[in-house]
């Protein structure tokens, strides 16, 4: 995988557009997911995820080839999300939390292995509830929780993505987990 990515990056460095398309294909779901979990809004997540890839392309020369490409890419994406969250007006969140229709659209895309429709609806509602609870987390806890539990990254990778010491990442995961425990215990 890493070898393939490196080869594609070298092609991009030589000016080959299409090689970048393959990179986008490989990482699009992960990057989109980070943005969606961070922002809680599908359209905004799509815009920012696209923006993250465009930035990666434009700045590809500053990518250190000995580094893990995903770390670099996720860093661009999380930084964009964090910037966006900081610029937003607080009342926006209320909109995002209530907008259940957004979720419907969203989860209809999840490959479903569930047979019964009622089970599916139930699971849909649960998924929406969980997303709402994730959105309630302060941004600094939300980012670590998303990277740790949704993207399943190691503490070291998270610390590299967020440019924070591992100890800080750990503390934030603990706080985030505490908050989620309180929020989700009655489900």
């Amino acid at each position: 995988m890493d070898a393939l990515i490196k080869e594609r990056i070298n092609q991009v460095l030589k000016g080959d557009h299409n090689a970048f398309g393959e990179i986008v294909e490989i990482y699009k779901d992960k990057v989109f997911q980070i943005c969606f979990r961070m922002l809680g809004n599908r359209q905004e997540a799509e815009d920012l995820a696209q923006e993250a890839f465009v930035r990666a392309y434009v700045n590809i020369r500053s990518f250190n080839i000995t580094m893990k490409f995903s770390t670099w890419l996720y860093r661009i994406a999380t930084n964009l999300c964090i910037d966006r969250l900081r610029k937003k007006k607080p009342d926006y969140y209320l909109d995002a939390e209530v907008a259940g229709t957004e979720g419907l659209n969203m989860y209809s895309q999840i490959a479903s292995d569930m047979a019964k429709p009622e089970e599916e609806v139930e699971s849909l509602e649960l998924q929406e509830t969980i997303q709402v609870e994730i959105m309630k987390l302060p941004e600094k806890y939300r980012s670590v929780i998303v990277l740790k539990y949704i993207e399943e990254l190691s503490l070291k990778e998270i610390s590299e993505i967020l440019d924070l010491p591992v100890g800080t990442v750990k503390t934030r995961i603990h706080r985030g987990r505490e908050a989620l425990r309180k929020q989700l215990r009655h489900l």
């Binding site: 779901d29 989109f32 997911q33």
Partner: peptide, 13 residues
């Protein structure tokens, strides 16, 4: 709580 959060993964672009 962790398991619930993990269960929401796998969104597709």
């Amino acid at each position: 709580a962790v398991a619930l959060v993990q269960s929401t993964s796998h969104i597709k672009a």
